[in-house]
Amino acid sequence: MRRLVVDANPLVLLLVGFAAVVASLAVRDLRTGVIALTAYAVAGAVLLPSLRFALLRFVAVGVASVSVVWSTWLLGGHDAELALTAGLRIVVLALPGAVLAAFLDPSRLADQMGQRLHVPARFVVAFAAALQRFSALREVWVQLDRARRARGFGPTRNPVSLARHGGALAFAMLVAALRDAGRMSAAMDARGFADARTRTWAEPAPWTRADSGLLALGLFLALVPWLVR
């Protein structure tokens, strides 16, 4: 069971993630919100190989959710239930996609988009190559942070200084990513990417029964809040 999500068709993961948007539209009161989130949580507990990172993503989504709760409470006449519902809606909207996105295998996603959906190969392949570099950004961030700290440009404990440091690092990372992309595109063009006319695909883009099953489950989960409304 726990391989199901890891081996899943990337298109199914995307569809299940987007279906959560439909689910969130049905979250109009606290009860449906709790039921919808519980349904997703149970599915996650059964299907995900590790819950630790799902919880980390939950924290990230939670920050967004809390800010919505706060502003709704402030502007919505201090109605706690209304505010919590709005917060829950955000969690239901974003969490499934945020968790599943981490399981996308860039090459397999490109295979599916190129061969099944017939998206232009040039776009798809460049997209996959970029996606594949995404995980390297963390290491770049660490190196940039170290370099700035060693040169006296690190932050102090002051929150303003921390925020400015974060901004400077984010900008530096953008520059590093662009430089990296330039070098990578040189490497790709040198391997015939620039003038590829009729491209082939090294691997097929299969759709298995497990994929259909997972998609059905994802659609069902999206319908849960509509059914209990």
Binding site: M188, R191, T198, T200, W201
Partner: peptide, 12 residues
């Protein structure tokens, strides 16, 4: 390794 071959349109 397959990347250049895909670009050249080589069969699977």
């Amino acid at each position: 390794v397959a990347f250049g071959l895909e670009n050249a349109g080589v069969a699977r």
